[in-house]
Write a protein that binds this DNA or RNA. Sequence first.
DNA 1: CAATTAACCTACTTGGTCTATAGACTAAGG
DNA 2: CCTTAGTCTATAGACCAAGTAGGTTAATTG
Lengths: 153, 153
Amino acid sequence: MISKKTKYALKALGYLAEHSTGDPILISELAREENIPRKFLEAILVALRKGGVLKSKIGKGGGYMLASLPATITVGRVVSILEGGFSLVECLNDNVKAVCEECGDPACCGIRLVMSDVKKAIDSVLESTTLADMVERSDVARQQKSKIMDFSI
Amino acid sequence: MISKKTKYALKALGYLAEHSTGDPILISELAREENIPRKFLEAILVALRKGGVLKSKIGKGGGYMLASLPATITVGRVVSILEGGFSLVECLNDNVKAVCEECGDPACCGIRLVMSDVKKAIDSVLESTTLADMVERSDVARQQKSKIMDFSI
DNA sequence: CAATTAACCTACTTGGTCTATAGACTAAGG
DNA sequence: CCTTAGTCTATAGACCAAGTAGGTTAATTG
């Protein structure tokens, strides 16, 4: 499961991708529009800035902007920043060099071998999906839905 | 991340797959050989039995056996029993019909759409890998390693 | 320059879940 | 009927995600 932190991050980034006009957008606007606890969101945005996905501007007229185009920011990158990579066993996490206590020999641990395959599958999806993709898919789904609605009226 | 519970389950099942002679194997043997806390393992084995993966025999000469051949038990099934399916957002979990509070409209939630793809990718690996596969891969890795060892001697 | 705006930072609380343990109970075999 | 071995219920403790609070620093503007 991804954490709420990551979900909030993706929602906020999606909002930024859709509503960015070049001017910074306020934390409070993001929090309000996407129903995210204000203070919690702050911490998330800081992490994303440190991760290089966001730029910020302090003081009056300040706020947050995407650091690059939505089509260049992958969902995988966001997940990686907020969860330190997404894997299924400790010993496959990006940052961690540690060996799970369980698998005596990492090279021969069957679980590790299987989960490594799973991780590859996950990563390939996450790395190939960008913020732009995510927003677009959401839009398409919304349009299709309203089309069906029109039709039924 | 999969829980320790699931890891222990896979280890125990791997042991059963490798050492089953038709006779039941004791919880205490499994616990000892795979370094799993005895009482904790008990609970796991009960879950696996209820999930139809294991059979048990009570009383003297009792213990646990696989309910079917290792090649017919998928890792996905084990994960599903112990974690209620493995997905990345609540609203994609097998058992849960609940909608995440976050995505107002599940049909249009970009995160949900993306994560649904990820889930498909995960499931396709997990469902296509059996206990037999897992054990075999572990064996192959071990053999290769000892081959290299021999070579270097 | 001072007032205001808005991001930044540190620390804390809380609630829930994962892990593990204890002990009493039930079933089977000899 | 005694030993073996799985079954069930309850509980303790550690840990982490989620959320809260309040003060600090930086930029703009009048």
